[in-house]
Amino acid sequence: MYELKDTEIIFVFTGPNGAGRRTVAQMSGSTLGIKQIVSYTTRPPRAIEVEGQDYYFITAEAFADAESKDEFIEVMEIDGYHYGIKESDVTTQLQKFGAVCLILNRYGADALKSVYGDRVVRICIYADRDTVMKREQQRGDSPEQIERYMSHYDEEMEYKDSCEHAFENIDLAHTVFDLTKTLDENYLHRNLLDLD
């Protein structure tokens, strides 16, 4: 297992599905030069998802093969689909960029925290139940998908207090500004932004 240097850090974006964690992570990461580590999954892509940007969509057989070779740091099963993060992806990107981010549920966030300890900073992006449901409807999720996602809402919200930071995502620009400022001031010290 790769041992992180003191200057290397992993930001994990978590929170309820539909709260905007992926969008916030991508916008903040782009501003701060943080590379996103993309997870692997056996589930089919949603209409709006892009291969290699949202997930690597692979077959159950390919996933099982990688798992048998201990390529994953963590593996989760959610609603019958498998998800995993490859250790080699994390190691390579950390050595290149010094800071990386991932978008994970609470179990994935805990798994990374248990492996890398204080070098993992968990950031909960959340919104109220009605806002989350409305966003899921707007992106074209089926009623069955929305029901499945919302069945995890309460447990994802309970995890908020375990995270190092939490941001309510009502106004995207405001959320990204506050988050970027927090990460730069507390962890990165890159002074990339004029925040006055």
Rank of each mutant, 00 (worst) to 15 (best):
A111M: 12
E156I: 04
D128M: 02
M150C: 05
L104A: 14
Y153Q: 06
K113M: 08
T131H: 06
Q138T: 11
V121D: 08
T131M: 14
R139C: 09
S162N: 12
L172F: 06
S114Q: 15
C101K: 13
Y153C: 03
M150L: 12
F167A: 10
S162H: 11
V121L: 02
E156G: 07
V100P: 03
H152L: 14
M150V: 04
R148P: 00
V132N: 03
C163E: 10
Q138H: 12
R148N: 09
E158L: 10
I146L: 03
T175S: 12
A173Q: 07
D128T: 04
G117K: 10
H165C: 04
Q138G: 12
R129P: 06
I125Y: 05
Y107N: 14
A173N: 11
M133F: 10
L102A: 15
D141E: 13
H165A: 06
A166M: 04
R148Q: 11
D118R: 11
I146G: 07
K160R: 15
V132R: 01
V115H: 13
A109C: 13
E144F: 04
D154H: 06
E156C: 11
D178N: 13
D118A: 10
R139M: 07
N169Y: 01
R106Y: 01
P143K: 02
K160W: 01
Y159P: 11
G108C: 07
L104S: 08
Q138S: 13
N105M: 01
A166S: 15
V115C: 05
S162A: 14
G140C: 10
Q137F: 05
D118Y: 04
K113C: 06
L102T: 05
C124R: 00
Y116R: 07
R122G: 03
I103C: 15
V121C: 02
N169C: 02
H174Y: 12
H152V: 04
H165Y: 14
R106E: 07
V176R: 04
S114W: 03
D178K: 15
Y149C: 05
Y159D: 08
E136P: 00
R122Y: 00
Y107I: 01
E158D: 14
E144P: 04
L112E: 13
R139T: 13
R139W: 05
D110R: 13
Y107T: 00
D118G: 08
D154K: 09
E144M: 07
R106K: 13
M157E: 14
R139E: 14
I125C: 11
G140M: 12
E164H: 09
I170S: 15
E144C: 04
C163Q: 08
N105P: 02
H165E: 09
